[in-house]
Computed example of a mutant assay.
Amino acid sequence: MKPYQHISIADCNEPLVALSSDLDSGIITIDPHPYMSLGAPYGDRSPFFVRQGILERLQKSQAYLQALRPNWKIAIFDAYRPIPVQQFMVDYSFAQLVASKGLEIDSLTEDQKNSLNAEVMKFWAIPSQDPKTPPPHSTGAAIDVTLCSFNPSYGRIETIDMGSPIDEISDRSLPDYFANSSDKQEMEFHSDRQLLNEVMTYSGFVRHPNEWWHFSYGDQLWAWISHEKLAIYGGVR
């Protein structure tokens, strides 16, 4: 178990609501969705759903970002994630990590499996079926986000380079990885990560300790980081 999974849940029973990509409201959804493109088993569920309160907080964060950077938008990479999708992505990420090290899954020793799995689980939640320990994304309370800019003259949206891609299993994913760099571009990466954190925490979200892109409110991870006694969002099937 991860430390936040010991937090009790008293679900407030808010419904899941759809996130729509809308330049006027400022919130953008990334299309095509990366996990659906890999074949993740969403069935008839869309990844772009969140709890009602999460949508309202996102809108507040976007309004704040708009005041700071008028043509910048919050881009949603991923939101609601059914548990079968969580399992699919954990397995996929493990296989990708194995391949990146020039290894074969079928020939891994137990020590290698355990070591590689530990790397994966630094960034991925356990795909638990237990209602007491739902993965954060399966609650509708966790979102993976980045920043983009919109050029109204050309009608083009451009994703801001944050120094590493979302889901990269490496230390570059740590929020403050570039904090002490004197390289001009890396200093900009850190500044943009700080901006993203500022606009998201403005509306009450907290950031995952290992992932510059992952924010949540009301789930067990949020409660653990915020020293709250209860989570208000549990798993949604």
Score class of each variant (00 low, 15 high):
M1W: 10
M1V: 15
K2C: 01
P3W: 05
Y4A: 09
Q5W: 11
I9V: 13
A10E: 15
A10S: 14
P15G: 02
L16S: 08
T29F: 03
I30R: 04
H33Y: 10
P34D: 08
P34S: 12
Y35I: 01
L38M: 13
Y42N: 07
D44K: 13
D44R: 12
R45D: 10
F49H: 14
F49N: 11
G53Y: 07
L58E: 05
Q62Y: 08
A63Y: 08
Y64N: 12
A67P: 08
P70K: 03
N71E: 09
N71G: 00
W72K: 07
K73R: 15
A75N: 01
I76H: 01
P82R: 07
I83G: 00
V85L: 03
Q86R: 00
F88T: 05
F88C: 08
F88N: 05
V90W: 00
Y92K: 10
A95T: 15
A95G: 13
V98K: 07
S100W: 12
S100A: 14
K101C: 14
G102F: 09
E104Q: 15
D106A: 13
L108N: 03
L108T: 09
D111G: 04
Q112T: 10
Q112F: 12
Q112L: 05
L116F: 11
P127Q: 04
P127I: 07
S128N: 05
Q129C: 02
Q129W: 02
Q129M: 05
P134L: 06
P136F: 10
S138I: 06
T139K: 02
G140Y: 00
T146M: 08
C148A: 12
F150V: 06
R156A: 12
R156V: 09
I157N: 04
I157H: 07
E158N: 13
T159Q: 07
I160M: 01
D161P: 02
M162T: 05
S164V: 14
P165M: 13
E168Y: 08
E168S: 14
I169P: 01
D171A: 15
R172N: 09
R172I: 05
R172W: 00
S173M: 15
S173V: 05
P175L: 05
Y177I: 00
F178K: 09
F178A: 04
A179K: 01
A179Y: 07
N180I: 11
N180S: 11
N180W: 05
N180P: 01
S181A: 03
D183P: 12
Q185R: 10
M187D: 00
E188H: 10
F189P: 10
F189K: 11
D192K: 10
R193M: 06
Q194L: 13
E198F: 08
E198I: 05
V199L: 10
M200R: 06
Y202Q: 03
V206W: 04
H208T: 04
W212M: 04
W213I: 01
W213R: 04
F215T: 09
S216C: 11
S216E: 06
Y217G: 01
Q220N: 11
L221P: 03
E228Y: 07
L230P: 10
L230S: 07
A231C: 04
I232T: 07
Y233V: 02
R237V: 06
